[in-house]
């Protein structure tokens, strides 16, 4: 009996080794490259260069601007849609959610190509509005990823709470602000996580609409093409730290919600 337990437990070994070798180790290597100079000595030089250069800082700011606007626009469109699908006029039609999620399964480069063709007919030349086109394409790409988690969280919301709120005399705006929004924070957090980081790094979208301004992802792409592993690692390390902070922050928010609920 003891032996069989050992055997089941040991099934984890291949995946543990895989994670260690191909998930953890690559990140360690990237961080090592990022925090050392050419001779392997510990150095923050690379980061000082990045954070003091106007060009590199401009890239960081531009990626943050793109990511924030994309996330906000996605949220503004996805929230009403998710609410209507979960609690509104469409709440009994589960297949409708599928229609909104379906584009997720079509290759994103093909979807962007389609949108690009439409935009170039509407605008005459895509090069006129590179920034607006970037945002439109990003929103088009990521919208389903925002609708999904919001729907999941809103459909779990107890409808009797909304009725109670109305019975106690709250206006629908008050119900939205004091009941629906707070209870859907976990959905908002996971939606934002799914959109914000990809929007900071998905430089293919910018390439496809001829936006030649760099975002953080483009820097890695260009260092990769130049075989500059050190500088590529610096950017990766910066992104990793950003992701670390981001997940720590969102993790804490989600954690607080769970504490508040219990």
């Amino acid at each position: 009996m003891k032996l069989t337990f050992l055997e089941k437990k040991h099934l984890v070994i291949p995946y543990a080794v895989f994670l260690l070798l191909f998930v953890i180790l690559p990140l360690v290597v990237v961080l090592y490259y990022g925090f050392t100079d050419g001779n392997g000595n510990l150095s923050f030089e690379n980061f000082i260069v990045f954070f003091s250069g106007t060009k590199t800082m401009g890239t960081l700011v531009y990626s943050l601007v793109i990511a924030v606007i994309t996330t906000v626009v996605c949220l503004l469109i996805a929230y009403p849609v998710a609410y209507i699908l979960a609690k509104g006029a469409y709440c009994r039609k589960h297949s409708f959610l599928m229609i909104f999620v379906l584009p997720m399964w079509i290759n994103f480069t093909l979807r962007i190509t389609a949108l690009k063709e439409i935009l170039s007919v509407l605008e005459g030349n895509l090069a006129y509005y590179p920034f607006v086109n970037t945002i439109i394409c990003m929103v088009y790409d990521f919208l389903p990823f925002m609708i999904m988690p919001l729907y999941n969280s809103l459909s779990k919301l107890d409808s009797s709470l909304l009725e109670a709120s109305a019975d106690l005399g709250a206006t629908s705006a008050k119900t939205l602000w004091h009941v629906i929004l707070p209870l859907s924070v976990p959905g908002i957090v996971s939606g934002v996580t799914m959109v914000f980081l990809p929007a900071m790094t998905n430089y293919v979208v910018l390439d496809m609409v001829y936006n030649s301004t760099y975002i953080m992802g483009s820097l890695i792409g260009s260092y990769f093409s130049a075989y500059d592993w050190n500088n590529g690692s610096v950017i990766s390390a910066i992104l990793l730290m950003l992701i670390g902070f981001f997940t720590m922050f969102t993790g804490r928010v989600a954690g607080e919600k769970e504490v508040a609920r219990s």
């Binding site: 690559p26 990140l27 290597v29 996580t193 992802g217 992104l239 997940t247």
Partner: peptide, 15 residues
């Protein structure tokens, strides 16, 4: 949670 760019780049650097 990691960006795909970083996943791809880091595996490339290692392997």
């Amino acid at each position: 949670v990691n960006a795909d760019v970083v996943t791809g780049f880091s595996v490339c650097v290692l392997l």
